[in-house]
């Protein structure tokens, strides 16, 4: 972490897929312990921005720093060159990510999913990793499911294992990419509860792409509205509930706040 408490510093980030410009200059700072909720219509670039933060997507312009370290690139003679695979992997280990479709490893049990990266990437001794893994599964309320394969778990349970898996690396920043949009309505609550717990009890720094405005209101410090690759409005959750400034924001909120 930097002296000013900045976990994420994104500056004028650009990204294009072929001719399509998906991100047109995104700048965002996130401080330690902050919960930032990103909203916006589909195709606005929210997920792409999240994926750029851990370099799953290369950026075409601007810079992203996590804990003061440039992500995915090194500076050489004032120019940015892509970093080595090892260094990028090391940086990713500091950034947890939770996916819309969970992406659990289906050939491993819940506990094996959680301990895999600590053991293989961090070289944590297996017994210690298991103890920590069991504690994490308990934290997400799944200590009784540790030897169960993902195929036998409900969507909500799978997503909670995925959260535990990301937390096992003790990341400085957690990214949630629409974590509840692939879930049945009944199981959304259990996942949101876990995320609220992280925010309130553990002061986890997180960026959450979601349309769950209830979640934003309860634990969000800031809401960011994206449209067409830009941040068009930023403010407290209350601001978005009471007096959104942009017409585009009002229109969007009227659709998701039914």
């Amino acid at each position: 972490m930097t002296a000013d408490g900045l976990v994420l510093h994104a500056e004028d980030v650009h990204k294009r897929f072929g001719r399509l410009e998906v991100l047109r200059g995104i700048s965002l700072d996130v401080r330690r312990g902050e919960v930032v909720v990103v909203i916006g219509p589909s195709g606005s670039g929210k997920s792409t921005f999240l994926r750029c933060i851990n370099h799953l997507e290369k950026i075409d312009g601007g810079r992203i720093e996590v804990n003061g370290h440039l992500i995915g690139y090194r500076e050489r003679d004032g120019k940015l060159v892509e970093d080595s695979e090892k260094n990028i992997a090391r940086q990713r280990a500091e950034i947890g990510m939770v996916f819309q479709r969970f992406n659990l490893f289906p050939h491993m049990t819940a506990l094996e999913n959680v301990v895999e990266a600590p053991i293989r990437v961090r070289r944590t001794p297996a017994p210690q990793a298991r103890r920590q893994g069991e504690a994490l599964l308990e934290r997400v309320g799944l200590d009784d499911k540790r030897d169960v394969y993902p195929g036998k778990l409900s969507g909500g349970q799978q997503q909670r294992v995925a959260i535990a898996r990301a937390l096992a690396m003790n990341p400085a920043l957690m990214l949630f990419d629409e974590p509840t949009s692939a879930l049945d309505p009944e199981t959304i609550g259990e996942v949101l509860d876990v995320m609220k717990g992280l925010a309130l009890d553990f002061k986890t720094t997180m960026i959450v792409v979601t349309h769950e405005m209830g979640f934003a209101r309860e634990v969000g410090d800031r809401v960011v509205m994206m449209d067409e690759g830009r941040i068009i409005e930023e403010g407290t959750p209350e601001h978005f509930f009471r007096e959104p400034r942009e017409a585009r924001t009002k229109q969007f909120l009227s659709k998701i706040l039914v």
Partner: peptide, 23 residues
């Protein structure tokens, strides 16, 4: 194999080789 598997592995800090071999 779903591309998400490789992405999840890499998001956890695995290198391409390790993700290939283990996941």
């Amino acid at each position: 194999i779903d591309k998400g598997q490789m992405e999840a592995a890499r998001s956890l800090g695995m290198t391409y080789r390790l993700a290939m071999r283990r996941i």
